[in-house]
Simulated assay, not measured.
Amino acid sequence: MRLAITGGTGLVGRFLVNEALRAGDEVTVLTRRAPEGGFFDGEVRHVAYDLDGEVPELAGADAVIHAAFDHVPGRYRGGEGEDAAGFLARNLDGSLRLFRAAERAGARVVFLSTRAVYGPQDGMLSEEMACRPDTLYGQAKLKAEQALLASGQPATILRATGVYGAPGPGQRHKWADLFEDFAAGKPIPARAGTEVHGDDLAAAMRLGLNGTGGVFNVSDLLLDRREMLAEWQRLTEVSGDLPPAADLGGYNEMRTDRLRDLGWRPGGWGRLTATLGQMAGQSGFPPKRA
């Protein structure tokens, strides 16, 4: 399969590119800068692309995976900073241009969306519920979803939760600052959130590439920061102070029945602990016995 992947050099995009390479796909990465040699697990073609620019020629692509998103570094919610208009022009208008180009090329679209499209809700988040995003990030993603579905072109939308995983060369993983603060003895506030490993997100992407269309939640763990840091402490012997346990009672988990009915099986706590061990090794901590 010939794939064009936007945002492939990001923390999340790298998992999608590497899955495609493992599957034997021919991958073109659409990013502002070409990846460094060895960044991916195989060779890719690079075409310069920016969300606020013209879309490169997509003729010949079987599918377009759209994972690019322009935002203030480290922030999705609030990622517009002081430039709301520019944020929408790049992320919403840019996505719509990409979708139209994919349609002209006859390419399927797999769109990486977000749980932020739901906004404040009661109970479990399911794909059937009415969305009411309360951030510009969620609003931009939802409008792009709606336009893609209304176009009638073959498409799969993945509403992903937070994505974790070991970083690639030159990258920092999403918890790097947290682990550094923990080791420095800084107070860590209680917090919980839903997470999914990048490889499990890539497995959901593959279902979309194989022709499964529609909207799908992609989530695995409801993770208490205290539990994760306790495991990190076990692996590294860092002697930071664990935060209090988070209140999980009112947190909205995501239903993933639609994906699971298709055979999708995320890695759960086992994959998380293995990844923390990998991160510990990358950080220079000696491996510990399980």
Rank of each mutant, 00 (worst) to 15 (best):
A59F: 09
A59R: 12
G60L: 11
A61V: 14
A61C: 12
D62G: 14
D62T: 06
D62C: 09
A63N: 01
A63K: 05
V64H: 02
V64G: 02
V64A: 07
H66S: 13
A67M: 03
A67F: 03
A68C: 03
A68H: 00
D70Y: 12
D70V: 14
H71E: 15
V72R: 15
P73H: 11
Y76A: 15
R77G: 12
R77N: 15
R77C: 11
G78A: 07
G79T: 06
G79K: 07
E80N: 12
E80L: 04
G81V: 12
G81L: 12
E82K: 14
E82A: 15
E82I: 04
A84N: 10
A85W: 11
A85G: 14
A85I: 10
A85C: 09
A85V: 15
A85N: 11
G86L: 03
G86H: 08
G86F: 01
G86K: 03
G86Q: 09
G86R: 04
G86N: 09
F87I: 07
A89I: 09
A89T: 11
R90G: 07
R90N: 07
R90L: 11
N91A: 06
L92W: 08
L92C: 06
D93T: 13
D93N: 09
G94L: 01
G94C: 06
G94N: 09
G94P: 05
S95N: 10
L96P: 04
R97V: 01
R100W: 04
R100D: 11
A101I: 07
A101N: 00
A101L: 10
A101Y: 00
A102Y: 01
R104P: 06
A105G: 02
G106F: 03
G106T: 01
A107F: 00
R108V: 04
R108F: 10
V109M: 07
V109Y: 11
V109Q: 05
V110A: 01
F111Y: 13
S113W: 09
T114H: 00
R115L: 13
R115M: 14
R115P: 01
A116N: 11
V117Y: 00
V117R: 02
G119E: 05
G119S: 04
G119W: 01
P120L: 05
Q121C: 12
Q121I: 08
Q121L: 07
Q121K: 10
D122R: 13
